[in-house]
Amino acid sequence: MEHKNINLTLKVWKQKNGQSQGRFETYLVNDISTEMSFLEMFDVLNERLIKEGKEPIAFDHDCREGICGMCSMYINGRPHGPWEGTTTCQLHMRAFKDGETIVVEPWRANAFPVLKDLMVDRSSFDRIIQAGGFISVNTGNAVDANAMPVEKDKADASFAAAACIGCGACVAACKNSSAMLFLSAKVTHLALLPQGSPERKTRALNMIAQMDKEGFGACTNTGACEAVCPKEISITNIARLNQEYLYAGLTADK
């Protein structure tokens, strides 16, 4: 691919803390290599801002290889930017044209309050996992990996759901700020495997109860979550979660 340097105008959301108002700040960034990732472009800008004695832009990042789920920028009206199936850290500057204006916003949802600039508090996801995203395992020697037979198709579907990195793009894209794609990935991951069956009913009931408590909305099957998911989690998982919930709701003892 042809390499070149481009100049861009960035409109970035700046907000001091959760209590302050926040506004867009415009930055001109010049001589940005198209080989850079989106986050590296922010690094360049931040180094310049520090040298100029200005406040750098706060943003979340960790692994920078698309598996940690920390980077969370809403770029030009799409979570993780214009490319499909990529996180912000995997988005490269060749996705943009020279002279383009890029608008960068944090995830917007009541359940994801802004901490500073582009950083939001996603601990609501952790509490949903704590409510039911686990299995019971006996202590002692590790069980032989092949002792429990699993059908290949189910193992594959479970694995595909387990690819969810919990970045929150589904919530950011959903008009209802619903976390159903995230929950459905976590529930599907465990529900399709024999190891997940002991807590099968309480898992669906408790995780949904926690999701509602955290202030996420209800799913209306619009499909926006699936379209923006960097791990391409299928919306079919939401139907499976509904099925799990209906089954648990009808048959749970208490």
Binding site: S178, G217, T222, G223
Partner: peptide
């Protein structure tokens, strides 16, 4: 009730919206 509740789950909206890039207009306009 659902429409009202769901709308209130995002008090501060986006400057640039996802729009039709992820879903059909009628799915969002029930």
């Amino acid at each position: 009730i659902l429409e009202w509740e769901n709308r209130n789950k995002r008090k501060k909206g986006y400057a640039v919206n996802l729009g039709n890039k992820g879903s059909k207009w009628y799915s969002r306009s029930m």
